[in-house]
Design a protein around this nucleic acid. Structure first.
Length: 151
DNA sequence: GCCAACGTTGGC
DNA sequence: GCCAACGTTGGC
């Protein structure tokens, strides 16, 4: 799951412990939230549009997806006037901070590591702020982080 | 339903 | 700041 650290990074999540991952206005991601996300799932926190893009830590999905409240809030930048209360267009999920990698895994490391070439987030022109990771890829990423000194 | 124009994203 | 790539929009 990616976010710009200048807007909301892993520092914020570490402070908040738990947050609502909302404001996503993409139907593919909405469907992933709805169909694929379950309580207890592991997620990686990816920093984008910053000095060092890459995976910076892990989170746990804290529960089922629910209607994203920001779509109904006229004050929110994510307000969607077309969305109806009785059939919300957009979903959010709650995530809980798990841990921060002592050393972030930068984009170029991810790109060049055998076994991770299938990661959707590495695809050129990828439009999704949330992308799936296979079990094997997750194990690899965790072991790479461990090599870098994370307990 | 097609598709060109447009806006956004994100790495560089 | 550039630009490739993509999703969305709206006219037809």
């Amino acid at each position: 799951m990616k976010s710009e650290p200048s807007v909301y990074g892993i520092d914020h999540l570490q402070r908040d412990k738990r947050t609502s991952w909302g404001g996503v206005r993409n139907y593919q991601v909405r469907n992933m939230f709805r169909d694929d996300f379950a309580q207890g799932d592991l997620a990686f926190f990816y920093h984008s549009s910053c000095d060092e893009p890459g995976i910076v830590g892990t989170m746990k999905i804290a529960g089922k997806a629910y209607p994203d409240p920001t779509q109904f809030d006229p004050e929110s930048e994510y307000f969607d006037p077309r969305s109806k209360r009785d059939s919300p267009s957009w979903l959010a999920v709650d995530v809980r901070f798990e841990r921060r990698f002592r050393q972030p895994l930068p984009l170029d490391v991810l790109r060049s590591h055998p076994g991770l070439e299938g990661l959707l987030i590495l695809r050129r022109g990828n439009r999704l702020s949330v992308t799936p990771v296979t079990g094997a890829e997750a194990e690899l990423i965790l072991s790479l982080a461990a090599e870098k000194g994370v307990p």
